[in-house]
Amino acid sequence: MPGRPPRPGQGDGLARRSRRRPSGYDIRSFEPGGEERFLEIKTTNGHARTRFWLPRTQYEVAAQNPSTYRVRRVFHFQNGAEMFDIKRPLDAGLRLIPDKYLAVPR
């Protein structure tokens, strides 16, 4: 729309880092066509299959926003970093292993 300023990250080619924590993602961005994206970046120095932590908040935001949420996996970070997007939905691209449980005395 003429005269209307672009949304953050749209038109100027810049993505915006999430300021509201915990938001469940690192970066809010937009595709060239205007589609919103929530990006969570997971980085390790190990190989592509090195395990990483996915907090409950991130899992829930991904489940609530399956068409807009992306987990971008960065590996070999200190040795020529490489990257790929985890297949969606997350349950299809990751083997999720419960690690912590909330324990409440009876």
Rank of each mutant, 00 (worst) to 15 (best):
47 H>P: 14
60 E>V: 10
15 A>Q: 03
90 L>Q: 00
49 R>T: 15
48 A>V: 08
17 R>A: 11
33 G>E: 02
25 Y>N: 08
43 T>C: 13
64 Q>I: 00
42 K>P: 03
5 P>Y: 04
27 I>E: 04
90 L>A: 00
16 R>P: 01
97 I>H: 13
76 H>D: 09
45 N>G: 13
55 P>Q: 05
26 D>N: 06
49 R>C: 14
54 L>W: 02
42 K>Y: 05
39 L>Y: 03
81 A>T: 06
12 D>A: 08
88 R>S: 07
91 D>V: 13
69 Y>K: 07
76 H>Y: 10
63 A>C: 09
50 T>I: 05
76 H>S: 10
101 Y>W: 13
28 R>K: 10
34 G>R: 10
106 R>A: 15
95 R>A: 12
88 R>Y: 01
10 Q>N: 05
41 I>L: 15
90 L>C: 01
58 Q>N: 14
44 T>N: 06
15 A>G: 15
71 V>P: 01
39 L>F: 06
21 R>D: 12
76 H>Q: 11
23 S>T: 07
40 E>D: 14
39 L>H: 03
23 S>P: 08
16 R>I: 04
49 R>M: 15
71 V>K: 00
29 S>N: 06
63 A>N: 09
60 E>D: 14
67 S>I: 05
32 P>S: 04
70 R>Y: 11
103 A>Y: 10
101 Y>T: 11
106 R>K: 15
39 L>C: 02
29 S>L: 00
104 V>F: 13
76 H>P: 02
6 P>G: 12
25 Y>H: 15
55 P>W: 03
35 E>Y: 06
56 R>D: 14
23 S>E: 10
100 K>N: 05
57 T>E: 14
35 E>F: 07
51 R>Y: 14
29 S>R: 01
75 F>R: 04
